[in-house]
Write a protein that binds this DNA or RNA. Structure first.
Lengths: 212, 212, 212, 212
DNA sequence: CATGAATGAGGTTTCATTCAT
DNA sequence: TATGAATGAAACCTCATTCAT
């Protein structure tokens, strides 16, 4: 991916007609297909257009450049995961720590593991998109959501909720990624799901104890 | 007219004269420099050769292709980190859990954080090299080292040491990476260093409790 | 970073718009021009594209690689010669040996000599393409055509028609090539045309006699 | 093979010491080996040197450039074949046509077929060396040898001996080459050996008859 | 004499992007 | 709007040849 960085990542035109919406989604979906079948390295705009059943020209009508396309795909995924995570957080407000962590972590792992192939492919996109700030902003949002949830744990006062939330997120996301990339067997995923809960539960409790 | 293909990652020729040893290292070093200054995407063999003060031809005398170069650089880094980790593990044999974890985790975080820029750049290489098995094999080695260490904790019998070791590694490496990639301020790194210890300590203890 | 390999000689895409048909032919023609003016050794895809008045990229839209281009050019030539030869063979069914040979040989020599420069240039391509089977398959076809023709000679039964046909072809093609490559003056070509007929006539007759 | 044509094809230095002679021959032999195992396209000076067990530098001490090396190899082969042919011609002076042709043709075919692989590889070199005049001059010599032989046939006066000799040579060499390149099975070679004799015998006789 | 490290022009091929139809 | 032909910069890699050691 050559030349300039981050020219315009915004979609070029907002599809108003139904037909266009279909096209836009077909392209995004095709991008994922190509990602899975060919890898990032071999994902080309032409190839994506082909898979989507449109011409390159059409692709460029909706996405100003390749980065914007990749970005849109990544964003959709992140949005989905973030939404699931947020919901789980909100549902957990006021629960005791153990239940809260269990609910949230399982929601996250399940979201990521639903399509491990897609998740992995998207890690590569994220790397490719590197500095792009929006990727981080997604993290920010989740960060705040978790932070707010942690503040509702009954009878607990964390020393530094902000940091604790950050740490929990990093563990959750980082560990999951690591397992995924090392080649996740179903058994391993199951273990991860259970022990990531354990991990965060004991961590948060020790944070609390520590605080006391 | 090309015709053939050879996808070896092995260095092409072992330098016999003193002069060439210098060259080989200059190239590897230059690769890191370019990685940092331009990013993976803009790392070209020509650019690396230029930076190293040699011609492309020379580069290709020692590395059969670009991948091999990147691989060599990554391998050197991984070897270093692995070596430090192994040492810490061996030094910790027989220590009580808390001390053991503290020693090992701190060694790992320090190794990774010594040059955050290099570490981050190498994550991208690792992504690029994707499937390459050797990357995984490094993980395997560390895995065994940690497993063996865990078996020496006095008075503790883990339900499934293999998995526990795997989990600890994933947490250690994954969380560190996540923090790094989200943009690590020195303060954050300090917090990570401390809390990653906490995290693993409490996890291992709860694993143990669980077993009982 | 390359990674894959595809060594198809098949044209990459069939032109659908009128414009591109023109382009494809311009490129093939340019290839011959370059072949004549620079020689195989100095025929580069860039040079061909330049001569054709298009960009390299365009060339690669229609020919997946250099070999495919050379192959296409060679094939066109061989097809033409083969077609002329086949026609002459068919027209000669049932003729007495002398007339038959005269008709066929003259058709062949005339086809090859129409553009001696092109013929010679293509010998080099054929060498370059070496093993490529299609080159041989052209020979096969002609072989059968000649064999079938020989079986129609009235009052003659060859001992081993298959071999006789093979021998006749080898003589016809080989001798012509030899003369061509040794530097064919018009006078020499004229002599060849006449004596190659003589050669094959007397050979076939002696084969027949031999059989009797 | 780039840049200039035909700078100097003469060996750079005439080896005076025994050791050098050995080296020179080892290199020439290695060139043939590489030719057979890798093909012309992949014959590089470095590869030849390696195979010969010397350094490239050494190779360049004896051959001023790659062309000169190839040329030397080709020349050696041609010289050998030419010598055998000449001897056969001289031995045949004064014989009747049939015996003469049989002796000469069989000598030629046997010489070429002794190492079909080498013969074929050398055709490619000859193509590569293209215009180089010395290749032709070898032909000239043989031409004269044959011509002189033909003039000794008892009781025969050819209309145009020069041309007849040329034609015989072209047939002999061309047909052999054609069979060789189309993939010569031992059976085919045997047939060629016999029928090439037949071919030339009947041709020469009909030439003679013609003259009368 | 021999070595082999270094050179760098030059070749092939890809792919994001534009624009006439 | 959609198409897909055209573009061309830029990447990777090779290999004949030289020259310091």
């Amino acid at each position: 991916m050559p030349v300039e960085m981050q020219s315009t990542l915004e979609p070029r035109k907002t599809p108003v007609q139904a037909r266009s919406t279909v096209t836009v989604e077909a392209i995004a979906e095709a991008a994922i297909q190509v990602l899975l079948s060919h890898g990032v390295e071999r994902l080309t705009t032409t190839r994506v257009a082909e898979r989507a059943g449109v011409s390159v020209g059409t692709l460029y009508q909706y996405y100003p450049n390749k980065q914007a396309l990749l970005f849109a795909v990544l964003e959709a995924h992140l949005d989905k995961v973030t939404a699931l995570l947020s919901r789980a957080c909100e549902e957990s407000h006021g629960l005791p720590i153990k239940a809260m962590v269990k609910h949230v972590i399982e929601a996250f792992v399940d979201a990521k593991m639903e399509r491990t192939d897609v998740s992995m492919a998207l890690y590569k996109i994220a790397a490719e998109l590197g500095g792009v700030k929006v990727v981080r902003s997604v993290g920010e949002r989740s960060h705040r959501t978790i932070e707010q949830m942690l503040m509702t744990v009954p009878g607990v006062q964390f020393e530094d909720v902000k940091f604790t939330a950050r740490m929990m997120m990093a563990t959750m996301a980082g560990t999951t990624r690591n397992v995924l990339e090392a080649g996740a067997t179903p058994a391993l995923v199951k273990g991860l799901r259970k022990h990531l809960v354990l991990l965060c539960q004991s961590y948060l409790q020790s944070c609390n104890a520590h605080a006391v």
